[in-house]
Design a binder for these strands. Structure first.
Lengths: 268, 268
DNA sequence: AACTAAGTTCCAATATATGGAACATGATGG
DNA sequence: CCATCATGTTCCATATATTGGAACTTAGTT
């Protein structure tokens, strides 16, 4: 996928380091890398200088750097649905008393951008920024169901179809069939496909033009509830999703003095 | 500042985009950039391809991209003190009932990596990843006071010394004097230097070798408390800071023994 | 002390980034 | 309706930065 010259390669290295999920040594990276020793070495140096990586001289290990956190703050604030969706998530979480997720699609994976946890107060970034599979989560399927053909084909082909539970959809065919049902229903269901005992309903967040922005879900556990109880929330979740979609569309105006001539539905 | 070839330049561009704090157009970036048009253009394209930036074709604007959020999750988990400090922050927040901040130093600025809010539930990433001035905040001064000479000189010279309140220290001289007192006391005080009505005490987080890792603070408002009340928490805060420092030092062991069969990964 | 593995530096070859200028596109206004 | 201007996009010869093999240094082991 990479092919953007030095920038693409540098991003690859960042991903590599991040993928280890622990401090990683030069030699380990070298093994998992196509780059020759000297090249990788210089990349790591530059990235470390820039604060994109951080280096522990004692242990000679690299980890993703704090500059990423600073940049991500800006990304989260500006490019994600989270700031817009926050009050809605709060409300939905309060009303349902269940865990609520807000997710977006990022290179065919689910990227969680915000969360309200049923029990605990909140868990910060430890949740936001997390990625998960698309083919076996409510938010993932809700989003894929509303992709255009090109994006859909790409997304569907990039899933790993790993069997997490005996209910996981493990083929492109099964997934596509489910996506059709989702579009008919207007919402997605995760019936213990990712984790045993965990069920969830999810609605896509769309612009008025039908462009996919993200998804929102309410999760429950089979201990405490069944699908009938969970599905009772669907109308509420869908309304929230619509509100977020509408606001997102309006909010995306980059200041720009008077409104641009290109206002098709700018009423409000 | 930049000097790491293409990587450094690309990072500059990322910072540029992030600095706008709103969707920004090509021409705006070009004005604020040393790069020639074509060069900047290609940088933006590559970064957008890589998901480090996101581009809105309708409005022709760039914002920091979601890939940063993914990477930052890894950075926050691995490189920040937050995962280690979390239980301590929880405890401190519960005991004091006040706002608690955990910060690290990043290019002479305060980078907040976690927070517990007094009243409100929590504000997510809107705080983690946020940056602030070092010379007029408790955590900032607590950290600067424990830098080695080189780093200190650099940090002190890079402050903006903007007057936020009439108590703000607005000269290098005044700051250096305060840093000496801080080292004597072992903790820093912010006496409405950043925001009127907001006072705070902060302790540095150090390794046993004295290397600076970060700082932790308890904040109060002059409405509800005075410095005597706030300073009563200092011993507790310092103990927490020490515990975090000790754990951080121990935790940084990357395991790295042979056992974990690395050669074979990628289950999915 | 000899050996091995990991990390670092060097430098000529060459692939890559560069940026001036020409080319689109589309908005603005006369 | 065409002219004009602002903005964004592409081209291409040139210069420069990246490249990677190999030599070197350092640290750890037998």
């Amino acid at each position: 996928m990479a092919g953007d010259g030095t920038i693409g390669k540098a991003c690859d290295v960042l991903d590599q380091v991040a993928a280890f999920e622990r401090p990683v040594r030069f030699a380990e990276l070298l093994d998992n890398s196509d780059f020759p020793k000297a090249t990788l070495y210089r990349f790591l140096q530059s990235l470390t200088n820039q604060g994109m990586l951080s280096y522990d001289p004692d242990r000679q290990t690299y980890t993703p750097g704090m500059r990423l956190v600073r940049l991500a703050h800006a990304a989260w604030t500006q490019s994600s649905l989270a700031p817009i969706a926050r009050p809605f998530l709060d409300a939905l979480s309060r009303e349902t008393g269940e865990t609520v997720h807000l997710a977006q699609l990022d290179s065919s994976q689910v990227l969680y951008v915000d969360k309200r946890n049923a029990a605990k107060p909140v868990e910060m970034f430890s949740q936001a920024g997390k990625v998960g599979p698309a083919y076996c989560t409510g938010v993932g399927k809700a989003m894929m169901a509303y992709l255009d053909d090109d994006a859909l084909n790409k997304a569907v082909s990039q899933q790993s179809y790993h069997r997490f539970t005996d209910k996981t959809l493990t083929s492109e065919q099964a997934l596509r069939a489910d996506l059709i049902r989702i579009r008919q229903r207007g919402y997605a269901i995760d019936d213990e496909e990712h984790e045993p005992g965990i069920i969830c309903i999810a609605c896509p967040i769309l612009t008025s033009g039908g462009r996919l922005l993200g998804a929102i879900s309410v999760t429950g556990s089979t201990n405490r509830m069944d699908f009938n109880q969970l599905e009772a929330w669907v109308p509420r979740v869908r309304r929230v999703a619509d509100q977020i979609g509408t606001e997102a569309q309006a909010w995306r105006f980059p200041d720009t003095r008077q409104n641009v001539s290109n206002d098709r539905m700018q009423a409000t």
